[in-house]
């Protein structure tokens, strides 16, 4: 089916032009103000001042660390948990639909509303979580109100919110695997877990990669839940790059820093997804 026609361009080009029309100005704007130099006498005012001041700033390095911590743990845990739960769901016979509905229900609740609910649940004084702990005779925890544990619990909320995303995609993927492949595997005496690892997952390799990419990007951009639950505090313990860019852009009127952080995020994500994206494309040749 590799005939030469203009058909594929007909399907793709209009969309690309439409998107470019929307995004070209935001992108130009972002790059311009991030590198703008008002003192420059050259035709193109360009400077790395913003870049330099950011990468040498201790607080920003912490922002980067928090972002990487959150992204790494949230992505990896929810991805593995998503695969595992999809597998469990595939195994069982009774109650499939009820478990599926429960497991993906976090996706259905608006993030602002669920984050507010988490915030009250976390409250050490009147939150339900400490009440439960105390009922079972444990001491209450500090949850998101202590600098040492806040980021961990923010990560847990992110995992809660996005594992359903992984689960849904992977479960749908498992359902597209032809039944005869599974049947021949079980006839060969391979148990279902080995079948998952050695047969199903490799077939779904591309889908898994793309799930991972989107999961990674969402974790990297996590905003609503942090903003509602801790606003970046206590101290700066949960201030990620995106939270910082919000403050610089909307509260402190330093749009050049927001833009620079946006460029960092863009470059990070491009580096991290380029390989996977190309890998997915390779299969088509």
């Amino acid at each position: 089916m590799k005939d030469k026609t203009y058909f594929p361009l007909l399907l793709t080009l209009p969309v690309v032009i439409f998107l470019l029309a929307l995004l070209i100005y935001p992108l130009l704007y972002t790059f311009t103000i991030a590198f703008y130099d008002e003192t420059s006498e050259f035709y193109i005012p360009f400077s790395l001042n913003v870049f330099n001041s950011l990468v040498t700033e201790e607080r920003f390095l912490k922002n980067v660390y928090h972002t990487i911590f959150l992204t790494f743990f949230s992505t990896s845990i929810s991805f593995v948990l998503g695969i595992f739960l999809a597998y469990c769901l595939d195994q069982i016979k009774f109650g499939k639909s009820i478990f599926l509905v429960i497991l993906i229900s976090p996706l259905a609740i608006m993030p602002v509303v669920s984050a507010l609910t988490w915030r009250t649940m976390f409250n050490p004084l009147y939150g339900i979580l400490n009440s439960i702990l105390k009922y079972f005779g444990f001491d209450g925890l500090e949850w998101v109100t202590d600098t040492s544990s806040a980021l961990t619990w923010i990560t847990v909320v992110d995992i809660w919110q996005w594992t359903p995303f992984c689960l849904l995609l992977i479960y749908a993927g498992l359902k597209t695997i032809p039944v005869d492949i599974k049947e021949s595997a079980s006839l060969d005496g391979i148990n279902s877990f080995k079948e998952l690892i050695y047969i199903s997952l490799p077939i779904l390799f591309n889908l898994l990669l793309i799930t991972l990419i989107f999961r990674f990007m969402e974790a990297f951009k996590a905003f609503d839940s942090i903003m509602v639950i801790t606003q970046g505090g206590p101290g700066n313990a949960t201030e990620t790059m995106v939270i910082r860019s919000y403050y610089t852009g909307f509260r402190w009127y330093k749009p050049e820093i927001t833009s620079m952080i946006g460029i960092f995020l863009l470059i990070f994500t491009i580096i991290c997804t380029r390989w996977a994206g190309t890998k997915i494309g390779e299969q088509e040749n």
């Binding site: 935001p26 130009l28 989107f214 990007m217 995106v242 852009g249 833009s259 952080i261 994500t269 494309g281």
Partner: peptide, 18 residues
């Protein structure tokens, strides 16, 4: 394909104003 992917990379807050 990568261009389409990149439309999801920039958080809304960063490009809100433009």
């Amino acid at each position: 394909a990568h261009f389409i992917l990149s439309t999801k990379m920039l958080p809304g807050i960063v490009i809100a104003i433009p």
